[in-house]
Design a protein around this nucleic acid. Structure first.
Lengths: 394, 394
DNA sequence: GGCTCTAGTAAGGCTCCTTAACTTTATCCG
DNA sequence: CGGATAAAGTTAAGGAGCCTTACTAGAGCC
């Protein structure tokens, strides 16, 4: 899954150099996980000796990866100098290419957003869309005031699956022309930032896991219900992608609909809510949001449509639960937004369907899940890159 | 899921000692993966220097982990001394507790079986069963001629899921009394071998992955169809267990059977084949095997029952495929045995159900899958243990 | 027998870690 | 206010382990 630009170290032998580097990495990770700490403290926690910690930290500081952030007086004794990772040592780029919106964010190594843009995606051709992505990203980087050269990695979220070999996005039904080969390569060279591409549901899962309600879950599933139906799975902190990156394509789950060829995706996504509302007697220009609003007002047809949607979501959750055994399932996406109405019917129906009942929760990040997932993924690589390059030129 | 006996190293700091140990491990793994090799060859492949390889290998040899296994003359130049891992440096125990059979095997570190027993499991109470397991294991170890102290680790496969906290097996429907707490601890102390317990379908998957048709698969699913219905998933060589070890409990997949409360397990397992055969007009004392045999003879009722079973398996495979995206699905277990008849209907039905069509293959290991999976899992830990202990007493 | 090529060993040096003692700086207490 | 105590951090000495270089050992070829 790494973009081609991400160089794989050719399996360095375990020489002394690597020992030093491993210890520096150990300290840096410790600082990132637990926040600022003094050298003596780090020595105690890592088991390294004080002199070693001092020298490694000095070398990290020289490379600009850590810096002093203050002091702390212990109960008695000399005041300690605290060190913390320097968030400005590098930056990462996150992009969410959705059907309706394009979102771009630049974050520092701490993960704090330093600049961001959300603009409507009105592009109706792939060329216009890549242009929009590139110009928006440039704009956001410029706004952040960050030297573009310090943006070391980027991750793009999009419907569909990126095929590394064919260098194109596949299965992106809802974006016209988006399957053409070389689009991503074009953006990469125009931006001058290494880019990785991932499925939007997968990234949303990772975003919700890193910044949202998924934190600490051992096996976490994020179900994205909107224009389409998708699922992202995070297993022990890592994205679960399957053999070809198609894991979580639950739109293809077996489903006995009215028509022979109906797919689960058509039965659960936003369109289906509108359809069933119409069958239950609602009239006029309907959207999924309108149906949910009407249900909140007590409109009987809308209520029944929501009930039905809840049952179908329960069916989906039950299937995922039987295969994956998640401890937490989060509902997100356009329809997932109306979780207040859906949660009860989903849970009730689930009780009838299966003894495996994972915790079900609404998304905390909402529309930002994909973008934040992209950012989190990019950060992972960016942190590695910045560390690897610490010895090379500035 | 490591048993409590398996001590976790308390996160050694990265001192030189660990460097040495890591290099020794690197060499040992290389030898295990590629077979015998000379020191010069190892130096070239690992990037370590010849002196380092020599000294590390000498230390491994002193610990009894590797030994000379012959010589090899290069095209020209001095003949090289070949080194290989010593398979007798330790042994592992595998146990498959099935409803019908109890299987036990002792293997050396190369994975070759040095002793084995397959005996009928007629125990109808948990105490009788643990006694049987312990006495059989003792017998097998005795037969192998191996010093019992050198059997460093064991893995037990059983239906259900082992709950580490409650120290008991849960969800083991088909073994009477098997859910009592402390049973495994009892066997462990009686045998004097650290024991881990895993779900049988999971182990079968790992067995088929390690020794069977699953080799090299990125995401591999093994569906066990017999008395019950289960699935094991191997993702990038590691068992995928879910949050609580219940991943692959596909007996709980949503299913619209005739009766309201029918579960997929009841619709797919061996009993279901008999049932539908009876509905299609077969008479007499039926077993799943008998139905399949009749279908091979062309009995129309049996043929239709098999066809139906194939469709239901396809439903199962389709659900698993949509969630996991496996590149290979293997059918195993009692019913899976008759894959010759099932493969065509499964594939045909799958074509109609979903565009995701993983490769489907019959099990190569058959009844041995669980045992071999247990053995493979135990070996993993045994190799670690033997390596860790190399510095301690003999 | 000499040449060449490969396997393996020996010696010396380098890097990096640890231990132990020491300095610095703070609080506590008489 | 000055000494005892304690913690942070530095300096110095020693050692473990790896690499490089240079060498020896053995095998085939001319």
């Amino acid at each position: 899954m790494p973009a081609s630009d991400v160089v794989e170290q050719p399996e360095q032998p375990w020489s002394r150099r690597r020992l030093r580097s491993t210890n520096e990495r150990l300290l840096l990770d410790r600082l990132r996980a637990l926040g600022a700490a003094s050298r003596a403290q780090l020595a105690r926690e890592t088991g390294l000796s004080k002199p070693t910690v001092s020298s490694a930290l000095a070398s990290l500081a020289a490379a600009g990866l850590v810096h002093e952030v203050g002091t702390q007086a212990p109960e008695r004794g000399r005041t300690a100098v605290l060190y913390a990772p320097d968030p400005a040592a590098g930056y990462a780029l996150g992009v969410d290419i959705g059907r309706g919106w394009l979102r771009v964010a630049v974050v520092d190594l701490d993960g704090t957003v330093v600049a961001r843009a959300d603009i409507r995606n009105r592009a109706r051709a792939s060329a216009a869309l890549t242009d929009l992505v590139v110009s928006t990203a440039r704009q956001v980087i410029a706004n952040s005031g960050v030297d573009p050269a310090r943006v070391v990695h980027g991750v793009v979220g999009t419907p569909g699956v990126y095929d590394e070999k064919q260098r194109r996005v596949r299965y992106a039904m809802h974006l016209p022309g988006w399957g053409r080969a070389g689009l991503v390569d074009g953006m990469r060279t125009e931006l001058g930032v290494p880019l990785e591409v991932h499925n939007d549901a997968n990234l949303a899962a990772l975003g919700e896991y890193t910044y949202g309600v998924g934190a600490g879950s051992r096996l976490f599933a994020y179900i994205l219900i909107g224009t389409g139906l998708g699922m992202g799975v995070v297993s022990e902190g890592r994205l679960f992608t399957g053999a070809r990156g198609l894991a979580g394509e639950i739109g293809f789950l077996p489903w006995h609909g009215r028509q022979k060829q109906e797919r689960l995706e058509d039965a659960v996504s936003g369109v289906a809510v509108v359809e069933s509302a119409r069958e239950f007697g609602m009239r006029g220009q309907l959207t999924a949001k309108a149906v949910f609003d009407a249900a909140r007002q007590g409109h009987p047809g809308a209520v029944r449509a929501v009930e039905l949607e809840g049952e179908r979501i329960a069916h989906t959750v039950a299937a995922a639960a039987a295969v994956l055994d998640p401890d937490l399932v989060v509902l997100g996406g356009g329809v997932g937004h109306s979780v207040d109405l859906l949660l009860r019917p989903v849970r009730e129906r689930l009780r009838a369907l299966t003894p495996l009942r994972p915790r079900i929760a609404p998304s905390r990040l909402g529309e930002d899940a994909v973008l934040l997932g992209a950012v989190a993924t990019a950060l992972d690589t960016a942190r590695d890159l910045v560390f690897e390059r610490r010895t090379a030129g500035t």
